[in-house]
């Protein structure tokens, strides 16, 4: 845990990022880092700017100032597809499954930028082993899956690009506690197999139980940052987010 090498280059680094929607200032001087191999979570209440942070990282919104570095390269002015090509993948808020496509086609969409057929097939196999439910439903339309199944599909789809960094937006949303626990085990497994993960969550307890480090976002500012164990003990965070 928290065993990243501080001398290494972060895989992802946001420096003094400010993001606006029109006139509304959302992210205010956000700084954060994710090192290779880490599982880092970003905690915060509703409307604190968590999804906006992910959208800024992905290039779905452009920051007014500040830099987004990915694998040592400034990408804040690059297109989303460029960033995906460089190795980002995302499990978006509300999953964003392609409702009119089959489960299999959704997985293929995850591998959109790849051409190595044989290896795509290997990764598909790996995903289907991780989520056997998906194998039973390969030809079912994405839109007809249950919420839990859609979450699995969204994770599988992200894995299909063989990413260096997976960005996850509230993977626990709308899932029963048991399923949340299962999914978080899988997320940890994926991380242990070498994929770096940056996860946005409101379920702080759950997220911190598998994360190495965490940041806390409040109305667009990072107000706390620490290793997961310390955050779990933190009184301030307890009161604000863990609800006890």
């Amino acid at each position: 845990m928290n065993g990243h090498d501080k001398s290494a280059t972060p895989l992802l680094r946001l420096t003094d990022v400010n993001t606006y929607y029109g006139q509304i200032h959302i992210l205010q001087d956000v700084n954060l880092e994710v090192y290779p191999g880490e599982l880092v979570c970003l905690l915060g209440g509703n409307a604190s700017g968590k999804s906006t942070t992910l959208k800024t990282i992905l290039g779905l919104v452009t920051p007014a100032s500040g830099t987004v570095e990915f694998a040592g390269e400034e990408v804040q002015h690059r297109s989303t597809s460029y960033r995906i090509e460089r190795g980002m993948a995302v499990v978006p808020e509300n999953r964003r499954i392609f409702a009119d496509m089959s489960v299999d086609e959704n997985l293929q969409m995850g591998a959109y930028l790849r051409n190595d057929k044989a290896e795509i097939e290997q990764d598909r196999e790996r995903v289907l082993e991780l989520f056997p439910r998906l194998r039973e439903r390969l030809n079912q339309l994405g839109g007809t899956l249950s919420g839990g199944e859609q979450q699995m599909l969204a994770m599988g789809r992200a894995l299909m690009s063989r990413p260096r960094l997976i960005l996850m937006d509230e993977p626990s949303m709308g899932l029963a506690p048991l399923l949340v626990e299962q999914n978080f085990q899988i997320i940890r497994e994926i991380n242990e197999q070498g994929t770096t993960i940056f996860m946005v969550e409101q379920n702080a307890n759950m997220a911190l139980s598998i994360a190495d480090r965490g940041y806390v976002l409040q109305t667009g500012r990072i107000v706390l940052e620490d290793v997961a164990e310390n955050l779990l003990q933190n009184e301030q965070l307890r009161k604000a987010y863990l609800g006890r």
């Binding site: 989303t80 496509m101 086609e105 969409m109 959109y112």
Partner: peptide, 20 residues
């Protein structure tokens, strides 16, 4: 497939690396 993806959800398609 990319056309169908863009037709259903442009942002989601972009998130798969599709140049919309």
């Amino acid at each position: 497939r990319a056309m169908r993806a863009v037709a259903t959800d442009k942002d989601a398609a972009a998130m798969m690396g599709v140049d919309v």
